[in-house]
Every structure is written in structure tokens, then in C-alpha cells.
Nucleic acid binder design. Sequence first.
DNA 1: GCATTATTTTAATCCCGATTAAAATTTTTT
DNA 2: AAAAAATTTTAATCGGGATTAAAATAATGC
Lengths: 211, 211
Amino acid sequence: MQFEANHKCKVGETMVRNPDETKFQLQHDRLLKAAAHCFNQKGYSGTSLKDVARQLGLTDAALYYYVRNKEELVYQCYLRAADIGRDAMDRAIKDGDSGLDQVRLYIRYHLEYMLGDRGPIAIMSEIPSLPPRHRDQVLEFSRLHSLRFEALLKTGIEDGSISPCDIRMTGNAIMGAINWIPKWFHGDQRTAARVLQEFPEILSCGLRPVA
Amino acid sequence: MQFEANHKCKVGETMVRNPDETKFQLQHDRLLKAAAHCFNQKGYSGTSLKDVARQLGLTDAALYYYVRNKEELVYQCYLRAADIGRDAMDRAIKDGDSGLDQVRLYIRYHLEYMLGDRGPIAIMSEIPSLPPRHRDQVLEFSRLHSLRFEALLKTGIEDGSISPCDIRMTGNAIMGAINWIPKWFHGDQRTAARVLQEFPEILSCGLRPVA
DNA sequence: GCATTATTTTAATCCCGATTAAAATTTTTT
DNA sequence: AAAAAATTTTAATCGGGATTAAAATAATGC
């Protein structure tokens, strides 16, 4: 994903786009993470741009250099979250053997991202409050992701690694448990390790066939 | 739990407390449910009192007859949620046989309340944004509830109905899956029945000993 | 070191939502 | 039906947070 600065650049005329945008990219990335943290903590409307800015040692007005407005900030946070989720899913499908295996790996990879360098990731809990265009797009991404996850379950049931179940509900349960993590996890590495250790097993062991 | 009107009543003097407070109670209860619905949907800060009032066919100012302010509204929603959770827990412990049985029953009862007449129930996702006094109290209730749930798991492990696991993480996973439901459930009875049918099994089948 | 571009701040504006007091309406009591 | 109490509305205040423009500062290329 590529994000652009808010400032207008007449390319090839007076102003020139910064050829090496790494500085901007880096700050922009920090911004999305700080925002994700705040949004997860206090919700979209509950966090002021000042809150986010404070974490970056900036003024609220400074954020407008990186983002058109607050709504675009959540939007981009959500896009980033979708990206990361997709990434975890892709890897799980590639690396996984059976369906159960892929499910377990997806959970693992996703958690590694959430709790590791790429975290915090915004939980998409306020999609309805986005304006129609963005909402529909994010909703579509979210729907797609759910479908892919459900497909893993289906695969598992077909290859016998997962015992038959209501795919939709099972998917909702597993995703819910994952999405709720930011509500009680507050960054200590001890706990992060424990989550990484336990969750993939907890969330997938109920799927195994009784044999 | 008993809630009082915002209006001051000099009992035994000029003004007399309404002897039959059922009208007030009823409206107050409707208010908490409407608020819970909004809060679950758009978050605490994201919902205006006007939003809540609209659902009741009232003006925003009218709500102040029932609660001191917006914060007290969430607070009471959370107290109500705690009450209902406690209720489900009490019944589960009373009715349940083994630890696993109690866990399953707790999930069942809680879902019946959430999706039935007592719903919607506010998910306590914004405890941190309450003012210190209320926050600490709700946090305590929440902590207690989690402990009781973990105790069920412990009982189950001891009586052999649940296979050994990380109690804390398992509890978090199950509670998370439940708490997330309002994010995707939007009131259709078809789905409600399905949740009720599937969730207790999904969330507890992973606990059984492999044997 | 100068000129240009990139980044941030200062200092306003603007609007929305919470809150309140007083007035109006509805309900209950007698 | 009048009086009292309960409930709701109207109309105002008030502050906070989003947003913007212009100015200031930092960084970079030459």
C-alpha cells in the first residue's frame, strides 16, 4: 500500500515530489500505529487528534501534513489492518498443509503481526461510522477476509483435519476472540509470548475431529 | 439493581416519591437498552444523546430526567451488564454438573440474555474512559467475573471434565468471542437462534479432554 | 552559506454535542 | 375539574475538537 502526502505537488513544474519519500513514509507509518493504538483504546470518536499527536511528540495540526482529515486516518488504519490480515492469510495458505494446519498458521501469523513489529493494528470495530464510500470498501475487504477464513475451515472439513461444524459461526467465534485481544492486552512482552503460545492452540483445538 | 430519578424528592415533606415507580423504571430500562444498542454500534463517544433519544422517540434533553449525564448512562449500562453476567454465572454454577457443564451453561445463559428479552447488553469495551471512581468499580466487577469464569475452568480441570490448559488465556479467548458478537450480530432472529445453537458447543468443545 | 523544500507550530474559526433552566404538556391525585 | 406531580420540550449556553491558513522552523541541495 502507498500513501501520499496531503500537500499538493505539481510534478514536473515548480514543485517536485520528494524523490526519496522514506522520511515521510516512516512518520506516516508511525502515525498509523499511534492512531491504531488510540482507536483500539478509546474508540474512533473517543480519541482526539491531540491524543494521537501527543504520542508522536507533535501538535494535532501537524497530522494534517500526513492525512487529509481524521476520517482518512481511520480509513488508512483499516486499510493497513486489512493488508496485514491478507498477508497472514496468504502466508498461512502457502505454508499450511491441511486445512487445520492453515487455520492454525493463520492465527499464529496474524497474532505475530499484531503483537510484534507491525502492531498495534487497528481492530475494525467501527466500520459503520465511516462515510459510505470508505465504509463499503472496507466492508468488502472485511467480508472477503472472512470468506477466505471460512474457506480454510471448509478445506479442513473436506480433508478430514477439521470435524464438521457451522462454518460461519465458528469463523465468527475465532475472529472475535482474536479481535478482542487488544481490549485486554496492554503491551507487556510476557503476556504477548503467552498469547502467541496459547491462542493458536486454544482456538483450533476445538476443531479437531473427535476421532 | 435500583436506579433513581434525577429529580430531587423531599420524601415525607412537600414532594412525595412516586409510590409506584413502575413507569419510571420501565422507561429507564428502555433507555439503558437503547443506549446499549447505540454504544455497541458506534462506541461511547460516537453516540450522541440525540441518537439514543431518537430511538425512544424523545428529545435529548429528556434523557436528563432519567440520568444525571451521559457518563452515568454508560456507567449504568455497564452495571446492568455486570448484573446480567453475574446472573448467568450464578445460574450456571447452580445448574451445572461438572466444570465443563458449568462453562457450557454459563455461555448458554449469557447468550440467551444477550439475544433475548434482556438484550441488547452493553459490551464493556470502554471502561478506561470512565472517570476514576466508576472505572475502578466497573473494573472490579469485570475482574471478579473473569475470576469466577476462570474458577469454572479450574473446577473442570480438577474434576477431569476439561483438559488442562492455560486458564487465563482460555478465559480471554472465550470471553472475547462472546463480547465480539454484538459487532456482527444485528438482531435477526434466524441468526440469534444459530448463535444460541452453535456457540456454547463451539466455545467449549475445544476444552474436552482428548481422551 | 543561500535558496528551496519539507515539516511543524501558532492562532484563529467553526460546529456539534453535552448540559441547564425555564416553560409547556401530560399524568395522577383528590 | 382543579391541583399537584411527573414527564418532556424549547431555547439557550458552553467547551472541546476538527479544521485551516499563515508563519516559523528544520532539512536538504547546490
